[in-house]
Design a protein around this nucleic acid. Structure first.
Lengths: 248, 248
DNA sequence: AAGTGGTCTAGACCACGTA
DNA sequence: ACGTGGTCTAGACCACTTG
């Protein structure tokens, strides 16, 4: 294999391999938690050297799409494992400890996308949405109120009972529900953080006085190829918890 | 060079090279903005292959300690360049644009570390500190109030005039001042974010009413080897700006 | 023992920047 | 033309996991 890469193009070979593997992932050829073929196997399939496959996988691991386990193989990342299931939860106790919340769902509606949500989710204004509202309890106390919205087309047949069952019976997160029931895999997210105060809606839910300062976080969650799949707005009482961010 | 790496050890060779290069950086062998030796040169110096040096440099680039420029060389990261000088500023306008503030220094004091700051900076409580207070103006309006504290031992001979001159005359940031005048290079930082409300001190400085919701961000900035070198607490009016965080 | 990812080498060639 | 980083290869050996 001196010249003539498998799929000639202007991109470096390992970038092409990245695209091919990403396609396999998004098309469901390999499912979350499963192993993808070994590096040698992929090298044969794509007609490149093992080192080139390795570099492609290196970058996909950096992007949290794959996970390596020495001696075992390379696996499709999943949000259903203990340890990764709260990967997008950046709240810590004032002592710096991570705590895992329980959730109470308090609303399941259908609605239409307003201009802002439509823009964030890259859909047409007025598109059908599923709207979920919930409160997250940390150590038994309400700390986060979430307003979560997704295109209804992604969640055909979803019911409030299904969510309750997944979250309560299986101790799953919403993202693990998307993954197992709807083949939607969350890879990354963007958050816009502002300060606000509790209003008539959020104050009683978070058991604080109106006017209590709250973090307001608008999040868009993305799947493969940076496709936006979920929008949410979180109101957080930071009396006993803080949001942690590492800048590199 | 079949066996017997240059400095036998239990760490992978490229990890050892990383340590050697990091030592060169922290000891000032190569200064910010300067080029380090070429990969071939370093390979000869450390008696390893170019590929091994490359992997070491790859990771130091990921850690923002070095910057590659194809065809030119590999350079020591600096916070004095346009483009990198506001690398740690995560505030965007509501339209998602980055805006660069001007700063008004409103206080230069000396004090002692309380328990919290001492813990964060890994110094003894009561150690001498330099304390800076300033307001950052975005588009001419006050948005951020900063309380900044550093071990005085790191900033021998610093004066308020020196800071004013660096920031105003040279359009430099505080971090570029640390870098050029005190050989302190900020590599990473951790932030703890909470919501609060404007009080008697912050309200007039930010030109808002007492009780206005503010972001409160406690930051610790680190140099090489995760050594903490600066503590700061920022109060931010998020009426027209938001804090942006990318989760991967 | 066999298979996987992890490290390391030596050498080729390409792309970019400078002189 | 030359030196730099960037890509790619082929092959060796190590470390870890499983049968």
């Amino acid at each position: 294999m001196k010249k003539e890469p498998a799929t000639p193009s202007f991109l470096p070979l390992y970038e092409q391999i990245k695209l091919l593997i990403t396609r396999g992932l998004s098309e469901g050829e390999w499912r979350p938690g499963e192993a993808i073929p070994s590096e040698m196997e992929l090298a044969r399939r794509y007609q490149v050297s093992q080192g080139t496959v390795r570099k492609a996988i290196d970058e996909l691991v950096m992007d949290n799409m794959l996970v390596r386990r020495q001696g075992k193989g390379t696996f499709v990342a999943t949000l259903t494992d203990e340890g990764t299931n709260y990967r997008f939860l950046n709240l810590l106790t004032l002592d710096g400890e991570k705590e895992y919340p329980s959730s109470e769902f308090i609303g399941f509606e259908r609605g239409k996308a307003d201009a802002q949500v439509a823009k964030r989710l890259d859909i047409r204004p007025g598109s059908a949405l599923v709207i979920l509202r919930r409160v997250l309890d940390f150590s038994g106390k309400p700390v986060v109120y979430d307003d979560i919205r997704l295109p209804a087309a992604q969640l055909k047949g979803i019911t409030s009972a299904m969510i309750e069952d997944h979250v309560n019976a299986h101790k799953g997160t919403l993202y693990s529900l998307y993954e197992t029931r709807y083949q939607i895999r969350i890879i990354s997210a963007q958050e816009r953080i502002r300060a606000t105060v509790a209003d008539e809606v959020s104050a009683p839910l978070l058991n604080v006085a109106i006017g209590t300062p709250l973090l307001c976080i608008e999040r868009v969650a993305f799947s493969y190829n940076k496709q936006p799949v979920e929008w949410r707005k979180s109101y957080i009482n930071t009396e006993n918890y803080y949001y942690f961010d590492e800048l590199n």
